[in-house]
């Protein structure tokens, strides 16, 4: 039932976004002596906060399933070694991914209602939604990068980047990774009449982020598995009505 949401997220993460890094970036304009190039396959990526905007044109057709996404979405991203948070402030929505040992715990956050829906590892498995932590943390599947042609590292205003281009399964990709923070500065993908562009607006060390995730400690957390037994809960009715449907195989 929540496939659409997940698909949307995965598209945000793995597919499209574009980053315009430099102009608005908080990172120094010149190469700093201590700037490190991060191995994108590293187990622990730097703790960062970032702001992105995603724009789309056309309609996407994929396996007879379609996403009706807004033309432009701004969103924020926080990442540390155990937790990834995404918020779309203008919608009052958020996503939380937590790594706990070998398990992945996911919550969809409804800030206006101060409630959350939690997906246990088994729920994610049943829904065929088992993203790797690396994919969530990079906002991109590293296996996809492996299939693209990678250019040499370039330094621009002290920031190391690597550009990737290519075509995978009828989709044309253009990706720029910022290697100092291990985040995409730009993701562009096109297939048919559809195109999507996600760009990084700002990136900060996590401790220096000018904004923090909305506190969720007091939220009433509902299990995904319990939604079917909460047929009289107004919040659940509202959320379920909003979810739409997507059959997956």
């Amino acid at each position: 039932m929540f496939n659409t949401i997940f698909k949307f997220l995965s598209k945000l993460f793995a597919l499209g976004l574009l980053i315009v890094l430099a102009a608005c970036s908080h990172v120094p304009a010149k190469q700093a002596a201590n700037t490190q190039i991060i191995d994108l396959s590293a187990a622990n990526l730097p703790a960062v906060a970032a702001e992105f905007v995603t724009t789309r044109t056309g309609e996407e057709h994929e396996h007879d399933e379609h996403q009706a996404l807004p033309a432009k979405v701004s969103w924020r991203f926080w990442r540390d070694s155990q937790q990834i948070t995404i918020e779309r402030p203008q919608l009052g929505l958020g996503e939380l991914w937590q790594r706990d040992g070998q398990e992945l715990i996911h919550r969809k956050l409804y800030h206006q209602d101060q409630r959350a829906i939690e997906f246990q590892a088994g729920d994610l498995r049943m829904l065929d939604i088992t993203p790797s932590w690396q994919k969530l943390a990079l906002l991109l599947d590293s296996q996809l990068l492996d299939k693209l042609t990678a250019e040499e590292i370039e330094w621009t205003d002290g920031i190391p980047t690597r550009e990737y281009q290519g075509k995978v399964a009828d989709t044309k990709w253009h990706v720029v990774m910022r290697l100092d923070v291990a985040l995409p500065a730009l993701i562009e993908r096109e297939h048919g009449e559809f195109s999507e562009r996600t760009e990084l607006l700002n990136a900060y060390p996590l401790k220096a982020a000018p904004w923090q995730p909305t506190p969720v400690n007091g939220y009433d957390v509902i299990d995904f598995a319990d939604l079917g037994d909460k047929e009289s809960d107004p919040f659940v009715i509202k959320v379920q009505a909003q979810m739409g449907h997507e059959h997956h195989h």
Binding site: M1, N3, T4, I5, F8, E59, H61, E65, H66, Q67, A68, L69, P70, V73, R88, L91, L93, A241, Q242, M243, G244, H245, E246, H247
Partner: peptide, 23 residues
């Protein structure tokens, strides 16, 4: 949730947390 719906399908629209007709 396994409804496939064909031409009548609607999809989640995160812009307004509503649904829209899906192509």
């Amino acid at each position: 949730p396994g409804w496939t719906g064909g031409l009548q399908r609607k999809e989640f629209n995160p812009a307004n947390e509503g649904t829209v007709a899906a192509a």
